[in-house]
Design a protein around this nucleic acid. Structure first.
Lengths: 199, 199
DNA sequence: GAATTTCACAGACTACGGTCACTGACTATA
DNA sequence: TATAGTCAGTGACCGTAGTCTGTGAAATTC
């Protein structure tokens, strides 16, 4: 049954209204200067409606973040397949950092990293990374096949560690601000890590 | 003028009462289940008094965290000086992770990493790391002198990168919870990084 | 030592996130 | 198509973080 009932259709419309309103206000006033009451009022709905559709202000990003998956998808497609494992990872890191910095912005990323820390906040952060893991795991697999990586590397584990490099780099970006060049920091860090990975 | 006036002495006493009260309640009920009203009441003072002495609930840690510095200090003292650079870093990581896990606990660490993300929250997090940097920088310096590390390593930068390994590992601990063995994860990660560091 | 200023502290108040009981329109069922 | 059940949506309410104004005792000034 894929046809929406009138009720479901109405609900979806409300959700979209709230989402639109919220994103508008966020970009106008900054995430921290927007209250849920405002979002509710601005969207012509109510606080209760907001909480029907979203867990919290952070929850609004669950939606926004489908964009990230889209980024990953396009990225992998655009990547030539004849480059080495190291090159793939380096480009992935660079591409991601530029994307996060330019398209999503620091404020938004701050809220993402914030929400990751909130207990029982339904951890979309962890889920969000799924696509990322898949991609990295794929690269590792290929790297092993091409004999660029030791074959007794645990793929799942290794991809986790590599993604941890991202998180560490991004957390520091949020922590130190100002004269922190995200792309450069990321590049330096992952280069060392990759170097340490090869036998 | 080092002598406290009666007023200053009184104020200090009040601050200590509040601090004691707060830490008691935290350890009894967990950080997130303690309100500032409770702290005020339990300490026999008032909310106003609390905010005179602390910025926020997080601010209480500024005090608590002198303990961390103490940990670092004792740790470095206890470390034999005839071991290699790698060994020192590995032990530092292991010691720290055990300490943070056992003595401070996850809840508390979560609030630390949280507060690091809050803008203009007076970034004691960054400051807190100062002692840590000093220690790592010292190790690197020694490592270079002993010819264990390349001499064109930038000390300041490298210590930052090493400390980033800690943050990445700890952030993931808070993120993934449950079957995340902090000590083991930390060890595995830093080993790879150290391996990548040597020329 | 009287007058003035300062400041630790009290606690009422505000703002905001989040909850909950209720409503009424929609949907399912007979 | 009448009835029962469901659920999106409402907004008053609550808990708590943080603010603000007032107060009196201590400190300073004269």
């Amino acid at each position: 049954m894929n046809q929406l009932t009138q009720r479901q259709y109405q609900a979806l419309k409300t959700k979209k209204k709230i989402l639109k309103s919220a994103l508008e206000l966020f970009s106008k006033n900054g995430f921290n200067n927007v209250t849920i009451d405002e979002i509710a009022k601005n969207s012509g709905t109510s606080k209760g409606a907001f909480y029907v559709h979203f867990d919290s202000k952070y929850g609004v990003f669950l939606e926004k973040f489908k964009e990230i998956d889209q980024f990953y998808e396009e990225f992998t497609k655009s990547l030539p397949s004849n480059i080495s494992f190291n090159e793939k990872i380096l480009r992935l890191f660079e591409g991601q950092m530029i994307y996060l910095q330019e398209s999503l912005g620091k404020d938004l990323m701050r809220t993402v990293y914030m929400s990751g820390l909130i207990e029982n906040e339904h951890n979309f952060f962890v889920n969000m990374e799924r696509t990322l893991y898949k991609i990295i795991e794929g690269y590792i697999q290929e790297g092993i096949e091409q004999n660029e990586l030791s074959s007794n590397l645990q793929i799942r584990r290794t991809s986790l560690l590599i993604s941890r490099c991202m998180r560490g780099t991004l957390y520091d970006w949020l922590l130190f601000g100002e004269d922190y060049d995200l792309v450069q920091e990321s590049d330096q860090f992952i280069r060392i890590f990759l170097n340490g990975l090869k036998k």
